[in-house]
Design a protein around this nucleic acid. Structure first.
Length: 547
RNA sequence: GGCCAGUUGGUGAAGUGGCUUAACACACUGCCCUUUCACGGCAGCAUUCGCGGAUUCGAAUUCCGCACUGGUCACCA
């Protein structure tokens, strides 16, 4: 009995060789880097995935290379329906569609299939070869037995794992292994390691720099009972065949790097370059400590969070850019008119430690992004969002699109536009008082600030309506306010007022506040004159009289 | 517990032996501008770079030890 016999027994249908596959997937002829993002279809798009996608995309674009998506669905237990759709929807939404991918039955690119479950035979060609040369073997150990061994290792403070003296099935003779497979015993395939844990090797990571890691000596699983490969093996086969030159993945993979290195070396394949990205951290509300952002505890870990709340995609991208490359913000302020697409990513400018994802920062960036949009652009985006997430806003825009645009346009067309909207979700709360029906139905807490006396408020509003009402143009309107201020014994000039406040009942600021609160019920609003102009005389008078 | 990595203000961070009295941005506070709020402008916010020791004329930067934080140790990726 030979290894060849064993390989044929385990994988009888595999007739292709690695050379055949090499001919089917020839070496790429691209000048730039080949990157990939490899999500698992678990029905969840993690912010860390978006972060990596951005990096992959930039590297490929900057170098004139290729960026592709590979769906890693070798874990049938975790697979979720429509998850692949969610991945591509998110990528499209952020305008990050790759050069090569596979969506439904459509394959774009020559290195597919880009879904791992459809590549089973390809992996098995490599696995069969390994069995033939005696570098892989079937393992019949049960889960229970493995657990027992691990417990014993822990008890005796040994390293856990299937290595050295613990790799029992490795010692089985070919004849015995052959018989047991033939008899229908359950098994998986393990890699036969030749490494020595006490020997270290150097490894250069593009972000982490030089690492010193122990060689792998574990006979880890490469093919599961369902015939699909484990991540480690799929990584080898796919990234070799698909010609990946830079692998971008989370730093949790560093500890399995020795396995990958041994695998690549065994086949004599060149190792890709690696970027191990730091984890995205968050401050825990309860303990006050930093921790990895969590799928279960933190809604903002999911990309759906940003969509639901109506953050512009550009704002999310830019906030991620600030933690991807520490010099991004500087670059952005120096090149305000350029798109983030023009930025050249540099792995050396990436922090090696975990970066904190700060929602406050996102809000600030988002306000700036929205303030730079034209009214048409904002209206369109807000409307798209409202169609799925906010009936009220959709209704307001449907009712009168121009009126809506006029409202959001207040203090927009100036060198430093107003920044009061961070997300589409905020819009209704910002403008409801511009609509009579909402103004009638909402609970209003008139926030009068300085002048609180009912009689005085009535006096101010009455005098204003009688004598000084004028919204023809901004100057005459303001002059009216000034005259009103003087007549009632307040100071119309802020400088004079500040020199000696005791000489006056108050200032033009106080009068303006009364006019603003009387009209909007809020002490904070965009430019008062613009609001008045949009509302028109009748509606203003009606509201003032009702107070 | 073994192995690997990280540790600079409230936060993201710049920093690779003297240009650092530690940049810049967010947050916060104050002032100014402004008819109010916001926007904007200015200023304040780490006497100090996790702790201890060593090297050096000189250390956030180099070396050693310790502490803490994170990652990993699956037929999950």
């Amino acid at each position: 009995m030979t290894n060849k016999n064993l390989a044929d027994l385990i994988l009888p249908n595999i007739t292709k060789t690695i050379d055949d596959l090499r001919r089917e997937y020839p070496k790429r002829e691209v000048e730039g880097e080949v990157t990939r993002v490899a999500p698992s279809p678990t029905g969840y798009f993690h912010i860390g995935g978006m972060y990596q996608t951005l990096i992959d995309n930039m590297i490929a674009r900057n170098s004139n290379g290729v960026f592709y998506v590979r769906i890693e669905d070798t874990d049938s237990k975790r697979k979720v329906d429509d998850a692949v759709e969610l991945i591509y929807d998110t990528l499209k939404n952020y305008d990050l569609m790759p050069n090569e991918y596979q969506e439904k039955d459509r394959i774009v690119g020559n290195y597919g299939p880009y879904v791992q479950s459809e590549r089973k035979e390809i992996y098995q060609v490599f696995i069969k070869y390994l069995i033939e040369i005696g570098r892989a073997y079937p393992c019949f150990c049960s889960k229970d037995k493995l657990d027992e061994v691990r417990e014993r290792q822990e008890r005796y403070k040994q390293r856990t794992g299937y290595y050295g003296p613990y790799s029992t099935c490795r010692k089985l003779s070919i004849d015995e292994a052959y018989e047991r497979v033939k008899n229908g015993e359950n098994y998986i395939i393990r890699f036969k390691s030749k490494g020595n844990f006490d020997e270290k090797f150097r490894f250069d990571d593009l972000v982490k720099g030089r690492l010193l890691l122990p060689e792998n000596d574990e006979d880890f699983v490469i093919m599961k009972a369902d015939g699909l490969p484990t991540y480690h093996f799929a990584h080898l086969v796919d990234d070799y065949l698909m010609g990946t030159t830079i692998v971008v993945r989370g730093e949790e993979w560093i500890s399995s790097l020795p396995k990958h290195v041994e695998l690549f070396n065994t086949f004599g394949f060149d190792l890709p370059k690696y970027i191990h990205t730091p984890n995205i951290m968050k401050k825990d509300e309860e303990t006050g400590k930093l921790r990895k952002i969590s799928k279960r505890k933190d809604p903002e870990a999911s990309m759906s969070y940003y969509k639901e709340h109506g953050y512009p995609t550009l704002a999310v991208i830019e906030s991620l850019m600030t933690i991807i490359n520490t010099n991004y913000e500087q670059w952005h302020t120096n090149n305000p008119e350029k798109s983030y697409l023009d930025f050249v990513y540099d792995p050396k400018k990436m922090s090696a430690s975990g970066g904190l994802y700060d929602l406050d920062k996102l809000i600030n960036i988002s306000k700036t992004v929205i303030s730079k949009m034209t009214k048409e652009e904002l209206c369109e985006k807000a409307y798209d969002w409202a169609c799925s997430y906010n009936e009220d806003l959709k209704e307001l825009i449907d009712r009168d699109r121009d009126y809506f645009m006029n409202i959001i346009n207040i203090e927009r067309c100036q060198k430093k536009p107003r920044k009061d909207i961070a997300k589409y979700e905020d819009i209704v709360d910002n403008i409801w008082f511009m609509y009579d029906d909402l103004y009638e139905s909402r609970d209003k807490d008139f926030d009068w600030q300085v002048i609180n006396d009912k009689e005085e408020i009535k006096n101010i509003l009455d005098t204003y309506m009688d004598k000084y009402f004028n919204i023809d143009d901004k100057d005459s309107w303001f002059n009216g306010v000034r005259d009103l201020t003087n007549e009632l014994g307040y100071c119309a000039n802020m400088k004079e007022y500040k020199e000696d406040p005791s000489k006056y009942k108050g200032s033009v600021a106080d009068i303006s506040t009364v006019l603003r609160v009387g009209l909007t019920s809020k002490s904070m609003s965009p430019d008062l004159y613009e609001i008045m102009r949009l509302l028109g005389k009748d509606r203003i008078l009606k509201r003032y009289k009702n107070i």
